[in-house]
Design a protein around this nucleic acid. Structure first.
Length: 884
RNA sequence: GCGCGCUUAGCUCAGUUGGUUAGAGCACCUCGUUUACACCGAGGGGGUCCAAGGUUCAAAUCCUUGAGCGCGCACCA
């Protein structure tokens, strides 16, 4: 394109003209693939690896703004490292999202007329429907991720439910099963009646709601009253627990009472002593219902002699065990009936309003029932054969001292506060229930067949666990599927299954995720990887908050405040979207999104585009790096080197918003407002060009499209995407910065004089300069243009006095303009300010302990500032008296 | 209840290890000469850094307490 006239380049940057085209070119070039980068020589074969894995979006539908933010973060990291010359892999994927996807499709089917899709279609039929839906979503997601400019390697796209991942899941299951870490057990689980499936403790959302607390006795002569908010479950009580040292009840411990409350059989209630009971709360005694309370179940583990009676069934109604009066009733009805019975018999002692937290299923929304069932669990407290440690131990080590005390095998969580939250979570972690009663998901790789002859009572069942189905007749696979997070937990290594990928890219260098999936995902990846591979899954995790709307509300379908990232990206440009999303992102904090930010960002992108338009007219490609000829040149190159270092530092520490701020300030202020204007006088094309060249490299990770477009417009070779990251020595020099700062202040203050006196902008003013130990003469043409002045030897008559610094002052001729009063006010204001400042400095210096204890440099600096300020005040006083 | 954050200009937020007179963007006010840009330029106003106490020569920054907001966890039966 060469030396282009500005009219040949459109005045406004049009993202639509560039984005699709550029993405296709990038993708076609193969440079998203680290192997091709090596093949084509843009990355050295022995380069440092850098890997980042996309948290696979659920195939439940389309991506939202939060995904756009995450993709921006990951792509910035990936592009930065690629430009640094690292062997960079950004691996994309999608998650089958078991429950979420199945319930989504079922909902759709119901909406389109079915009553019960599971019944009407059967397992295979429904799965087929879900698969079709998931495939469609996968395509949509891939399209959206491309639209966001993500530089991921599509040849390595991974899906949690494709063949390699299924193999990984089955292999892991078998390994854990063989090690005794996965077991099938009869334990209480969280049961969603609505979803007809279990859910793990982490899938519960605790919500507060009002409830009634009833205090009652099982019978008139029962020695202890107990309280409950779930009276109907008391039909399954088998013990009353008290604190072992509680003098009120101590003597009762060990006794068993038969009570008749209407259950199928009279209840045997044993009084047990347990340290966990708080003697100061309520009656100091707890009615123990092992079948319908996690805590009570745990208590039974400590006191195995007490019974377990399930009175609530999987349909959410009372079982036969609950007795003829209750069997078949929904729990709420049973509750009313039971309370009425207590009241009638005079057993109810107290009724009070309380608020309680109940666990609701985050997927199905109903309050879960705690029910004992036979399910599959991962044992987190069991010793791993041959390792002398439990899964919990490994999960702790990985984020504290490093696996096995090896600091090189440590996961660093940013910000650190989440480390505590994670460790606290581990402390309280129970065995993880991994079996689900839904169909969409990895089927548990366990098969059963009847061993003994048909017709026998209690036939003996044979069980087989394997990666594939066993040989032989009559085997039937377990009908349950796995918690979707089981497969996600393998993500860091199950995705690196091609060639040498595992050796090259594991542990993964960088992961980012929202704080809401720390337990679901981060923790499970650590669990799986430390156990199976004896290494950490990733080195750095960056945790961010959630994205909110401009009023601080979550984006949600019900609020209708959703914004489609693709739509808004089309309207303002993807680059604008990316900086709008990143400019507020700090580790761990929520951030807000608004269309105001989109406008600002779009305007910025356009500004950068126009800077390049200017540069395109002024210079040509291929010039050597610019040589500084003037103060301004030295200044801008020094600044550039400084902000390059700063940006690199920010990126290395994931301070995305600071990096953007640094670059934005330089681009708009130093470069556009000052240097470009100066260039119109000094015309050092090579330096101008060099600054822009470097600048678009620094910007590229954040705004890849416009920078690549500029690079093309300026005749860059190949792709900006693979050009080397600016690695320039710092050349910022204090004397240059100071002198340029004085130039800047001078110009600004002259402009200010114009504003104060309302001087016609077109009028050129005469100004005399009096520098001391400062030579700005080479910059006089620049100053003349920027301030719109003629610099003369001396200015006589009415004039405004400007004290720029202790070595530069100026007289601005106001002949025929001056307004004595206005000038007196202006000078007076300045003087008052100087005197106030001098006073505060004097007070500081007058404090004896300041001189004694503050470092010498600070004292000397303060003193120098005071001298300057005093000198300034004196001069101002002189000027003031001379004009009155 | 326990734990962890947050509170800085009208709004959204920076402020890395305590050290010149606390910053940016948006909004606001005034003015527009200058063909890179009106998706623009120039100038300007605006802050008791939540409160109180403490440490220090020096605190937005460190400590203590409190208030408000948010998050995590929890067997108040």
């Amino acid at each position: 394109m060469g030396n282009m006239e500005p009219h040949e380049i459109p005045k406004a940057y049009d993202p639509k003209e560039w984005e699709t085209k550029l993405y296709q070119k990038w993708e076609k070039s193969g440079f998203f693939n680290p192997d091709i980068c090596i093949e084509k020589g843009v990355t050295k074969a022995d380069a440092e690896p850098f890997s980042v894995l996309m948290p696979p979006p659920n195939v439940t539908g389309v991506l939202h703004l939060g995904h756009a933010m995450e993709n921006s973060i990951m792509d910035v990291a990936a592009r930065y490292h690629r430009m640094r010359g690292d062997r960079t892999l950004f691996l994309p994927g999608a998650d089958h999202a078991a429950v979420a996807t199945q319930s989504r499709v079922e909902k759709n089917l119901v909406a389109s007329g079915m009553t019960n899709p599971r019944q009407e279609l059967g397992r295979d039929g429904l799965l087929e429907k879900i698969r079709t839906f998931a495939d469609g979503s996968k395509e949509t997601i891939a399209k959206q991720v491309r639209a966001m400019g993500s530089s991921c390697d599509w040849s390595r796209f991974a899906y949690t439910f494709d063949e390699p991942r299924v193999l990984a899941v089955n292999t892991m299951f078998k390994k854990m099963y063989d090690d005794g870490l996965i077991y099938k057990g009869y334990r209480v689980v969280n049961w969603s009646v609505k979803g007809q499936s279990t859910c793990s403790d982490d899938e519960l959302e605790h919500i507060e709601r009002p409830a009634k607390l009833y205090t009652f006795r099982y019978s008139k002569d029962f020695p202890i009253a107990v309280a409950t908010t779930r009276p109907e479950t008391k039909l399954g009580d088998t013990a009353v627990a008290v604190h072992p040292d509680d003098p009120r009840y101590r003597d009762l411990i060990g006794q068993t009472f038969e009570v008749e409350v209407g259950a199928a059989k009279p209840l045997s209630i044993k009084i047990i002593g347990d340290e966990e009971v708080d003697p100061t709360f309520g009656t100091g005694a707890v009615g123990v219902t092992p079948a319908h309370s996690q805590t009570d179940f745990d208590m039974r583990e400590r006191h195995p002699e007490i019974g377990l009676i399930a009175v609530i069934g999987i349909d959410g109604s009372m079982t036969a065990e609950a007795g003829p009066a209750y069997a078949g009733l929904p729990v709420l009805e049973a509750r009313g009936k039971f309370v009425a019975m207590l009241r009638e018999k005079g057993l109810l002692e107290k009724e009070e309003e309380v608020t309680q937290n109940v666990g609701t299923s985050d997927r199905f929304g109903d309050v879960v029932e705690v029910i004992p069932m036979e399910q599959w669990f991962v044992a987190v407290n069991r010793e791993i054969p041959g390792r002398g440690k439990t899964l919990k131990d490994l999960m702790r080590e990985a984020v504290t001292e490093g696996l096995g005390g090896d600091a090189d095998r440590r996961v660093a969580i940013q910000p650190e506060q989440f480390e505590k939250i994670y460790l606290h979570w581990i402390d309280l972690l129970r065995d993880w229930c991994i079996s689900r009663q839904i169909w969409w998901g990895h089927r548990i790789p366990v098969w059963y067949r009847v061993k003994s002859k048909v017709g026998e009572k209690d036939p003996e069942i044979e069980m087989y666990c394997g990666i594939e189905a066993p040989d032989g007749e009559g085997w039937e696979q377990d009908s349950d599927t796995l918690d979707t997070w089981f497969s996600s937990g393998l993500w860091t290594f199950s995705t690196l299954d091609q060639g040498n990928d595992f050796a090259n890219f594991h542990p993964v260098s960088f992961m980012q995720m929202g704080s809401e999936i720390i337990f679901f995902w981060m923790a499970r990846m650590i669990l799986m990887t430390t156990y199976a591979l004896d290494t950490i899954p990733f080195r750095d995790v960056y945790i961010h908050g959630i994205l909110r709307d401009k009023d601080g509300r979550k984006f949600s379908k019900s609020l209708g405040n959703g914004i489609d990232p693709i739509d808004i990206g089309k309207e303002y440009g993807t680059d604008a979207l990316r900086i709008a999303l990143l400019s507020d992102v700090t580790p761990g904090n929520d951030s807000r999104f608004s269309t105001d930010k989109m406008e600002t960002s779009r305007n910025f992108v356009n500004k950068l585009w126009n800077l390049s338009r200017y540069v395109a007219t002024m210079s040509t490609a291929g010039e050597d790096s610019g040589t500084a000829r003037s103060l301004s040149d030295r200044f801008i190159l020094g600044r550039l080197s400084k902000i390059a270092t700063e940006t690199t530092g920010h990126l290395a520490e994931n301070r995305f918003s600071l990096a953007i701020e640094t670059l934005r300030a330089f681009t708009l202020d130093d470069f556009a407002d000052w240097y470009v204007e100066i260039h119109k006088v000094e015309k050092n094309d090579a330096v101008l060009r060099q600054v822009l060249d470097t600048l678009i490299r620094l910007w590229h990770p954040f705004i890849p499209f416009v920078t690549e477009a500029i690079y093309a417009t300026l005749d860059g070779k190949g792709f900006l995407m693979t050009v080397h990251w600016p690695d320039i020595p710092e050349t910022e020099n204090p004397e240059t910065s100071t002198a340029f700062g004085e130039l800047r202040t001078l110009v600004t203050r002259i402009r200010n004089i114009r504003a104060v006196y309302r001087i016609d902008p077109a009028k050129r003013l005469h100004v005399s300069l009096s520098p001391k130990n400062l030579d700005l003469s080479e910059s006089y043409p620049v100053i003349g243009r920027l301030a719109r002045i003629d610099i003369t030897e001396r200015v006589d008559g009415a004039a405004a006095e400007l004290l720029v610094s202790d070595r530069l002052s100026a007289r601005v001729s106001l002949e025929g303009i001056i307004d004595i009063d206005a000038e007196r006010v202006r000078l007076g204001k300045e003087l008052t300010e100087a005197e106030r400042y001098a006073k505060s400095l004097e007070a500081k210096l007058g404090n004896p302990s300041f001189a004694d204890r503050a470092p010498g440099a600070i004292v000397a600096q303060t003193k120098a500032t005071l001298d300057e300020t005093n000198a300034k005040a004196a001069e101002l006083r002189g000027h003031l008296s001379s004009i009155s």
